[in-house]
Design a protein around this nucleic acid. Structure first.
Lengths: 348, 348
DNA sequence: TTGAAAGCGCTACCAT
DNA sequence: ATGGTAGCGCTTTCAA
């Protein structure tokens, strides 16, 4: 299989080589590659030349010359979260059709890492930038605004949007879950979240929990444990601490399904039945929460759709920019739903 | 926050602008940015100019001029798999320190999608390419060999390596699990895998299962169900079918922990106790298998390490290439271990 | 429909 | 330690 490959250690073929072989000018080759008007005969000849040389258009040269790259930058707090991975998949699928490519950065939940990534990735003159969340350093905002690149913030509804956004109110969604639990008859409702001040969405969910509790005249009982991304073990440890401090807790909502799962497993080990002894709810509708026993009551959002929509907004902005028309300024709100499942009591 | 940003819609600052403002030549600016020898005084002046203009080096121009990009391409079958996500994280962490950037592609388990991605991503003249698995189209191999780019195949031990590799024998690991189950006293051992012929690692695990069974003089009982990536639901449905066909099965090994979890949940719903009525083992040591009840016996590999090592190999190759020294040709084998947990009987 | 020339923004190379 | 010049490989623009 390797025998028929020419040892072209020397250098890769250039457009000029293709042009010479096809007996045309570079411009004609360029036009063929760009799908512009070229006579059928020439096009065939050029394509044969491309084929026989194994020619690949050089991306940097193209970008430099045209002033337009094919990159969309996406920054996520963590690659190893199925939620963000789904968002990235959605974005990728939505831009792939247009021949755009994903330049991915993992901020590891650190705003300064985000700023660094924005700085280095802007060097590639991306057509658009997708950020996660709405909490960014001033320098990040400044870099993005200065570069005039289309931006979409996701997974949140920014108070001070940089440009566009696709998301939902994490606080409101968490409050909705509190009200749902209240409707199930629960009155001593606890909250489990991460200890990191960097997970803005986690903090917002906690805010929503506190606010809804206050509105219902209930007393908060919240535990913070573990760095983001919060894991199953964190959930187990956190509920242990919560029950230690407030043994009469009748329901716990968790910042994510993973911690909820960990919490449920802990309860099982302690001989507590979920939901008979204690109700437990999660957030995010992860795969595990649909399949474990009991299945986990959760807040469902559509991460893939967030990514897909972000891709659409970025492409629309890029197109507008190209054509000199005014850029759209859309704030896209996506749905969330409470999924009632087995880990909490029936609503009354 | 937005007031102090100059409305530079016009165009971004160039290196020449920085040079003029600092009163030096472009070359000096370039040297400052590259960290080369420049007098302390000039360096400061240049950096101030960079700062005050908000200048960002243009990546395409640099790549075109130097003939060297800062990209490492990584192709994974699925972004939404914690195993591959961890590998990507490992790779990212290992190359980040050198200022390299990840160009990510999701093949969706399709070799032709992989070929397409290789073709389009090679246009960016990456310093290296990380592939997942060892099953590639001929055109993929040809493109990579022709471009002379360092390649690392991961998650497998290729029979015909393109260049370098980091992985383990999936067949051997699966066979080891069969032998372990045999050592626990199991004799009627089933296998659950995906129905897709595209998941080469899944197929290899099945091969290993069949081979080990033959060596032990046992009869195979394998079910294929669901497209890759195989999910928890697939696992539940698959074990249902397996038990329908072979009701006396005493142990089942699954192609992944996710299907194993789904299978266990199915058994619980059917009133079957795991491991008392049936033993179930997984593959991959996913987070869920450490936390569910019963915890799942599995094959543990270190996905992060695979990615990290791949990054090291690619960087070593790239450095060798730069310096004209012969490129290393390493086949790196990573460990796997059987983790004995609660979902299977104690070894005898 | 096709071609020639200019130049995108930077770095290599040679000079001082 | 610093600068001038050439040119990376393409696309834009204008001309034929």
């Amino acid at each position: 299989m390797t025998e028929d490959i020419p040892a072209t250690d020397v250098s890769l073929p250039r457009m000029a080589d293709v042009a010479k072989l096809a007996g045309v000018s570079k411009m004609t080759v360029s036009r063929v590659l760009a799908g512009r008007n070229v006579s059928e005969k020439t096009r065939t000849r050029v394509q044969e030349a491309i084929e026989s040389l194994g020619y690949l258009l050089d991306a940097s040269a193209g970008t430099l010359s045209s002033g337009r790259s094919e990159f969309i930058v996406a920054l996520v707090p963590s690659l190893n979260s199925s939620n963000f991975a789904d968002t990235v998949r959605g974005l990728n699928d939505s831009i792939r059709a247009q021949g755009l490519r994903l330049l991915l950065g993992d901020t590891d939940y650190h705003p300064d890492q985000e700023a660094l990534l924005v700085r280095t990735l802007l060097r590639h003159r991306p057509l658009g930038v997708m950020l996660t969340g709405s909490a960014h350093l001033d320098i990040t905002r400044k870099l993005l605004l200065q570069s005039n690149v289309p931006v979409v913030e996701t997974w949140d509804v920014p108070g001070e949007p940089i440009d566009q956004s696709v998301g939902f109110s994490n606080a409101e969604a968490a409050a909705a879950m509190v009200r749902y639990l209240h409707g199930c008859g629960y009155r001593r409702i606890g909250f489990i979240g991460g200890a990191s001040s960097l997970d803005h969405r986690g903090l917002q969910r906690r805010e929503g929990y506190l606010r809804a509790l206050a509105e219902l005249d209930l007393h908060p009982r919240a535990v913070e444990h573990g760095e983001s991304p919060i894991t199953m073990s964190h959930g187990g440890e956190a509920i242990r601490r919560l029950l230690e401090q407030w043994p009469d807790t009748d329901a716990v909502m968790c910042v994510s399904d993973l911690s909820a799962f960990g919490a449920i497993m802990h309860c099982h080990r302690q001989g507590l039945n979920v939901p008979d002894d204690i109700g437990i709810a999660g957030f995010g509708d992860f795969e595990v929460s649909r399949h474990c026993t009991p299945t986990i009551t959760t807040v469902s959002v559509d991460p893939y759709r967030i990514g897909w929509r972000a891709g659409e907004l970025l492409q629309a902005s890029a197109a507008a920019q190209r054509e000199g028309t005014p850029r759209p300024r859309e704030v896209s709100i996506v749905d969330y739903r409470i999924l009632a499942r087995e880990s909490t009591a029936q609503p009354r």
